Computed example of a mutant assay.
Amino acid sequence: MLNKVSGIERYLNDSIGEPVGILRVGASTTIGNYLLPLLVGAFDRRFPRAKALLNVGNTKQIEIAVEEGECDLGLIEGPSHLSTLRVEPWRDDELVVVVGREHPLAAPRSASAADLEQVDWIMREKGSGTREVFEDAMAAAGITCKIAMVLGHTEAIKKAVEAGLGVGCLSRMAVQREVENGWLVEVATPLKLRRSLFIVTRESQYTSKLMSAYLSLLEKEKEQSGAGRP
């Protein structure tokens, strides 16, 4: 009932010349923490009578939130698994393997398939798009993954890897600062770790002026990032 009332409000708001109201945006962890905060701020400044509320979770959680109407649109890091959603590619991203400065792989800065089978991995939880892409890449390379620790947040994984507790595989966006400062070391591997980021909405959803304005902002960000390059 609340979703229906919200939909009626959007129809009424569209009679006004500018985007008005609250847009509930869901984003999986990497996107929500490293891409969207600046975009949400830019949206609020450009449209003073509109506001984007950001909800961050893993890919599975965001898909469900969009499907059930808790979010108006979602941005996810892995493939969608719900046929009820409309899925549009947004931009590309790349995962990188990282280790702490004292890890044995830090000096050569590279790892073979055999090396990757021997190390202890620190991973995100099931339902994470990052984990799904990593596991698919390992399986495609015929490598068995030895998971030593599962943590539900990217920042926790970075700290654990930096402390030498294991090896991580995270978005380049998430570890760029740590790699540039030498706190983490990027390791070259034979894994194919490119991935797409997607926009998901409900198939039957009405596209309001508010939604269109936000989608236009996402498209502009994609173009500025280099036609999808991270």
Rank of each mutant, 00 (worst) to 15 (best):
E178I: 07
T59P: 06
V97F: 03
K51Y: 10
M138N: 08
D72Y: 14
D92F: 06
P108Y: 08
G57M: 03
R195Y: 14
L191P: 10
G26P: 13
D136Y: 15
E221G: 04
V119A: 10
T189R: 06
N3G: 13
L2C: 08
K60F: 15
R101H: 10
L218V: 07
R10W: 04
V98R: 01
V133I: 14
E162F: 13
E70S: 03
F47K: 05
K60E: 12
V25A: 13
I76Y: 04
I122E: 10
V150K: 06
T30V: 07
R172N: 08
G100L: 10
E180I: 04
L53E: 15
L36R: 03
L73H: 11
A227C: 11
V40C: 03
A188E: 06
E102M: 11
E94H: 05
M1N: 15
A27T: 02
L36D: 07
E221V: 00
K126L: 08
P37N: 01
S28C: 01
L215N: 06
W90A: 02
G78R: 00
V40E: 09
S80F: 13
L217M: 00
I157S: 11
V87H: 12
N181Y: 06
Y34S: 11
P19M: 07
A52I: 02
E68G: 04
D14H: 14
V56G: 04
A106M: 01
K159Q: 13
E63A: 07
N55L: 05
S225D: 12
P104L: 01
V200N: 12
R46N: 10
A113P: 06
Y206Q: 01
N58E: 07
V96T: 14
I199C: 04
L82N: 10
K220H: 08
P19T: 14
E223M: 06
E117F: 04
A65K: 00
R202E: 14
V150L: 03
P48L: 09
V20A: 12
T201G: 14
R46K: 15
I143P: 00
T201M: 07
R49A: 11
V185D: 03
S15W: 05
G226Q: 14
T130R: 12
P37D: 01
A163S: 14
R91W: 05
N58Y: 02
K60H: 15
V87R: 11
E223Y: 04
T189N: 15
L12R: 12
R172G: 05
H103N: 01
A114C: 09
Q118C: 02
P190Q: 02
A107Y: 02
L116Y: 02
G7C: 01
G21Y: 11
S28L: 00
I147A: 09
